[in-house]
């Protein structure tokens, strides 16, 4: 890859007068020795899986494997149909779609890791809702996925994308940054604006710990995906309005590395601290694992 940082990525785009998505597609083809058509097809297939996951979580909601969560996406959609929402219809739709994909994930359904399964709802939530709203063709969204992948590639190689390494800021935080940058580009923003959107978004999730109850990708992961989709919309809007990330985005990524490195083990996906160790969190774990084999054999069967 010819870029290691977001500023290098933006410079590549300016030099070659290409979008971030376009640069990523060419670089991927060079890196893997495949032709661009093959690479594109793979990404287009992933987008289909994302759309299917959005649909499945809303139309066929099932409880998670543990039985702890499920059905929240549908609750939000029903609420939208009956009331005036505070967020407004469009942002609320992104929220519902993100919840939906995360719920499919928790039920051991099929999703695409973006960049991880714990954060798999944010990009589909933003992308699918915006596609419906603006009537975009699939091609635009697939190229948007390449843009988000380029951003994630920089974050992953300069910091981290797993909760076990860097906390939730590394998973949900990265996904919000990726979605925000890609959305800025899809809405006609420049590569520089897209990079600002990443920095703006990441700053808002710095320090977020990974503290899932029972170690399950459910509480609070699912709602954080919903919040994440809404935050990505806000970051893209700020960037498109001309708001800049005063601390450059590459420096914000270094802060994520610093903060994640300093995070205690109990706040990095071990279930040993945070929400997982609250009185209610502990009770849930006791109820779940106290019963023999509960973790192994219980749960919905969506497909």
């Amino acid at each position: 890859m010819k870029f290691k940082t977001l500023s290098e990525l933006a410079a590549c785009c300016q030099e070659e007068e290409k979008t971030i998505g376009r640069i990523m597609l060419s670089e991927q083809a060079i890196e893997t020795g495949q032709d661009e058509e093959q690479v594109y097809r793979q990404m287009a297939e992933y987008y289909e899986i994302m759309k299917e996951a959005v649909r499945r979580g809303l139309d066929e909601p099932v409880p998670s494997r543990s039985g702890l969560t499920g059905g929240d996406a549908r609750r939000v959609r029903q609420y939208m149909e009956g009331s005036e929402t505070s967020l407004g219809r469009e942002a609320c739709m992104a929220l519902a779609y993100a919840l939906s994909v995360s719920e499919v994930n928790a039920s051991m359904g099929r999703i695409v890791a973006t960049p991880t399964a714990g954060s798999c709802g944010i990009i589909p939530g933003v992308f699918v809702s915006l596609q419906e709203r603006f009537g975009w063709d699939d091609n635009k969204l697939v190229m948007g996925l390449f843009a988000s992948g380029a951003i994630g590639y920089v974050i992953a190689n300069n910091s981290f994308i797993s909760g076990a390494e860097g906390g939730c800021q590394a998973e949900v935080g990265s996904a919000i940054g990726m979605a925000a940058g890609a959305l800025t580009e899809m809405r006609g923003g420049t590569p520089v604006q897209a990079v600002h959107a990443v920095g703006l978004a990441l700053k808002n999730s710095l320090g977020l710990i990974c503290d899932p109850v029972g170690g399950l990708v459910e509480i609070p992961c699912i709602v954080r995906n919903g919040f994440g989709a809404v935050t990505a919309l806000a970051a893209a809007d700020m960037a498109l309005a001309g708001v800049r990330s005063v601390i450059p985005s590459d420096e914000v990524i270094q802060v994520m590395l610093e903060v994640g490195g300093a995070m205690p083990d109990k706040h990095r996906e071990t279930g040993m601290g945070g929400l997982a160790q609250t009185p209610t969190g502990k009770r849930i774990i006791r109820d779940l694992y106290g019963k023999k084999n509960t973790g192994n054999n219980k749960g919905g069967s969506p497909q």
């Binding site: 039920s107 076990a164 459910e218």
Partner: peptide, 19 residues
């Protein structure tokens, strides 16, 4: 550590956790 775009977008997988 991460070599290409599909180590970021992907894999297609059964949940709940990529790691």
């Amino acid at each position: 550590r991460f070599k290409d775009v599909f180590s970021i977008i992907g894999p297609s997988m059964v949940g709940p956790s990529s790691s």
